[in-house]
Write a protein that binds this DNA or RNA. Sequence first.
DNA 1: GTGAAAGCGCTAACAG
DNA 2: CTGTTAGCGCTTTCAC
Lengths: 347, 347
Amino acid sequence: MLRTNKQITLNDIATRLNVSKVTVSKALRDHPDISEKRTKEIKAAASELGYIPNFAARNLSSKKTRTIGVVVPAIANSFFANFIESIYDCAFENNYDIILAVSQENSQKELKQLETMLSMRVDGIIISVAELSENKEILKRIKKSEIPLVFFDRSVEYLKFSSVILANQTGAFSAIEKAIEKGYRKIGHIAGWQNSNIGRDRFLGYKEALQKHKITSNKDWVVFSGFGKKDGYNSFKEMYKKNNLPEILFAVTFPVALGILEAAKEVGVKIPSDLDLICFGDSELNEYLKPKISCVTHDTSDFAKQTFKLIMKQIESKEQFIDEHVEIETKMLMNETCIKKQFKISH
Amino acid sequence: MLRTNKQITLNDIATRLNVSKVTVSKALRDHPDISEKRTKEIKAAASELGYIPNFAARNLSSKKTRTIGVVVPAIANSFFANFIESIYDCAFENNYDIILAVSQENSQKELKQLETMLSMRVDGIIISVAELSENKEILKRIKKSEIPLVFFDRSVEYLKFSSVILANQTGAFSAIEKAIEKGYRKIGHIAGWQNSNIGRDRFLGYKEALQKHKITSNKDWVVFSGFGKKDGYNSFKEMYKKNNLPEILFAVTFPVALGILEAAKEVGVKIPSDLDLICFGDSELNEYLKPKISCVTHDTSDFAKQTFKLIMKQIESKEQFIDEHVEIETKMLMNETCIKKQFKISH
DNA sequence: GTGAAAGCGCTAACAG
DNA sequence: CTGTTAGCGCTTTCAC
């Protein structure tokens, strides 16, 4: 048997009930124009016929989609996964749909995904850009086409979109201060790309803390790369080769810290006894790590809520631009790394 | 400044070039009707004007969306996260878009999400149903409306949709046999809901193995619940109260095993020395666990590819129903649990 | 090769 | 309260 592909339309309901299709359309949307009785009749008929509204038609004529596009660099990642779940919750509560795209840290995919979202005429876009993203052009087009967009976590600052980001610099700063407090003086950083706000600001926080406490760093102790586990792995190997490890490393993200752990294990460097470790960002996985990494944490659910709030504000506003910046506070969580140096030596 | 909301249409390009909008439409889609030269001109003009195709209009008139809806119970879960990433890859390669929805194991949300997908007129649906899903009605409607649908992992069998599932029974069977081989005789099961194929078939495999080896179970050693970490946690606590633990537990999913680990730790039961543990399913997280859980694994990327292949086949076919069932093979991965009993006793 | 006509299913604006 | 009219932007069909 072949597929038939007939769909029930407003007209089918209308002719059956001897009313106009406008009446049906209104009734189905609970428009106050229509009497309660009629509305009930119409809804009953619609459900009986198995009517399914056609969003394409609705969107085309109403010019609204009640849809928000979300672009993230990865999904198999505690932070983004949790962020997304929260965003879905927000959307559900507000009767919005989410179009999710995963760029996989790939600038080209990101571009295509953004284009798709524009073609879908999403009401707004929430994005955390891929590392080394080169999509200025399309972002400018989005700016021009006046579609609301909010950056979260990883932003592109000079384009004057709103953003919700972490307190990257102060978070990094206090993490390093904590290490100094514990007695560390040789402090290294597996840093992120410096054209990304999170890479740059966390590096700035690191430098700031060292400066304040008049501690000198060393070229060998800082390596720059991306934000994933592999980056951490490779960077550590690179640093290790120089045969001049610091006492403690500050990883730019949690996945990077994971990579460091793995690489260190491979070459026989024991953490935290031979080399200690802290990082920016947390993960459910940390619970199972041995040692549990001391890290800079934040409230991801709140992060998502704030981001959603901001995009909604922008969607509902008639203003062309809202250029608002929210910073989510961080907190240093002390676990089993970043231990007292004095204590270590006494062993 | 207020938002203006003007969009460039085919007509704008057409009038500028003094051709008809049909020509433009065709050129933009590389239709062989149009000469190469014209096509080039038109594409140039389109990009210059910043033309963005309107999918709603396109879908409405063409009745195709090149979009596939994917519904999963959770996203902050290694298996689903990896599955989704692979599905996105497949879609990308085939020039399809993905609409992702997360039911959060909630039947009502699942319902709403499926309705949304129908309204979006997705070309096909890939779904792993929520535990205790009660959405027979809408599935029947989907069947009736002839939209291709493929279940993956968790299916609803009696509705005759295609499915791609794991070798649940044989996978469970060989896991239990492995435990028996190692010397275990008191074998418990933190099982899943029995109205779900994965809960039921894994339980069947468990029973089958015991029967084959003439090993008796005990009521106290089997508890039924859901597939998440909390379920494992609660189930273990429940079993523990009965004061009659088996020697080894078989967890229906990896998250359930995680919950067991946590609960066991809380009450002071040491794994694997006091109580051993195996489970169905793996996770990246296992790498960091101590002990690493011995588990039934599979190739998630292949799983996703097979699922995508099946939905594509269905979309491209003119047949009303394809009722095809693929089973993904599993493999027992021996880690640091499910250790030899003899060895344990000799300690 | 190109284009005119018709319509996809819906909603906004207005008229009764 | 209900209905008429006029599109939304695009593709399909078919004539030229």
